[in-house]
């Protein structure tokens, strides 16, 4: 058993917690409105259940739910986490382009995510993004479908396509005066649609687009949207180009089994030391490695190809 597999388990816990929070926040909002209305007796049994369960859940932490719970709002696109306002850097880029202004109170809310990305690279995509959870489950579904003999396409496109989407989005936002990224960015869509479904009364239009991206992943390219289209992924990759923390291969431990390449949903090549700015720190390669050859390391640049693994046949032949 691999010693570092807990990293990937921890990642699943974080991803699930983010998703649970996104589901919890609309229910807390409903509870707040029930409290504000002072009309518990008029609630339907279903609404009473929501009010009761949310009350039990939050009672130890709040005195006045109508006010105190305002510190927990929004989504990963932009929201308040225990009073701290955080925004996706893409929302800031999109809004600055669409509004043709720099609104500083908003820009500072993206500061923490940007700093974390500069250090850890594209970690948002692997550890926070609520769409990632669904895309990874979708990828598992794809694997089952493949095993069942259905044609699940794994085409390779050009990774640089997403940078084009990012640039085109900025230009189109400039001309149209609307934050277009909000309509095509899966984490923004997911957060919003969960809220719509729970508290507003039904999904909005974004869910159609998201379902299409799931189909795209199954029918065109593995994790295709994140790898080739997502403008947020592109922005995070660029911000994390000089990331300080990188997954690296220890050539002395590697046995050339190539499991890492198979498991990498982003189609990277850990076996040949190719990580780059695209790696989202998902740690699947670390978890699958039978010899613990893959590890996080603090370094500015990826190592160049270090040759075949020292535990593999090819190296022994030499």
């Amino acid at each position: 058993m691999n010693r570092l597999v807990w990293l990937n388990r921890l990642r699943w816990v974080v991803l699930s917690s983010v998703m649970l929070l996104l589901i919890l926040i609309p229910f807390l909002h409903l509870y707040q409105t029930y409290e504000a209305a002072h009309a518990y007796d008029l609630l339907t049994p279903g609404e009473k259940f929501i009010a009761d369960s949310m009350e039990t859940l939050t009672k130890p932490f709040v005195t006045d739910p109508a006010e105190d719970l305002n510190g927990l709002k929004g989504t990963t696109w932009s929201g308040k986490l225990f009073g701290l306002a955080l925004s996706d850097p893409l929302s800031v880029v999109g809004q600055s382009a669409a509004g043709k202004t720099l609104y500083w109170p908003f820009i500072v809310t993206a500061l923490i995510p940007v700093l974390l990305t500069v250090v850890f690279g594209r970690f948002f995509c692997g550890w926070i993004c609520p769409a990632t959870l669904l895309y990874e489950l979708n990828d598992n579904l794809g694997a089952w479908l493949r095993r069942a003999g259905l044609p699940v396409s794994r085409r390779r496109l050009d990774r640089r396509l997403k940078y084009l989407v990012l640039a085109a989005g900025v230009v189109l936002s400039l001309f149209s005066g609307a934050v277009l990224f909000a309509a095509i960015y899966p984490p923004a869509i997911i957060g919003r649609e969960i809220y719509y479904a729970i508290a507003v009364g039904g999904f909005g239009v974004g869910i159609v687009f998201f379902l299409l991206t799931l189909l795209f992943d199954l029918m065109v390219a593995r994790r295709g949207f994140c790898r080739y289209v997502c403008p947020g992924g592109a922005l995070y990759s660029l911000l994390g180009h000089f990331r300080l923390l990188r997954i690296q291969r220890k050539v002395t431990h590697c046995n050339d089994c190539a499991k890492c390449n198979v498991v990498c949903q982003f189609g990277l090549d850990p076996w040949h030391d190719d990580f780059g700015q695209e790696c989202n720190n998902c740690t699947a390669c670390i978890a699958v490695c039978p010899t613990d050859a893959l590890k996080f390391e603090w370094r500015r640049f990826d190592a160049a190809f270090q040759g075949p693994g020292h535990l593999g046949h090819e190296y022994k032949k030499q």
């Binding site: 696109w77 308040k80 043709k100 202004t101 609307a178 934050v179 919003r192 508290a199 507003v200």
Partner: peptide, 10 residues
């Protein structure tokens, strides 16, 4: 052009 569609107002 300024609204980022985050839904927090709602």
């Amino acid at each position: 052009s300024r609204c980022i569609r985050c839904g927090q107002c709602g």
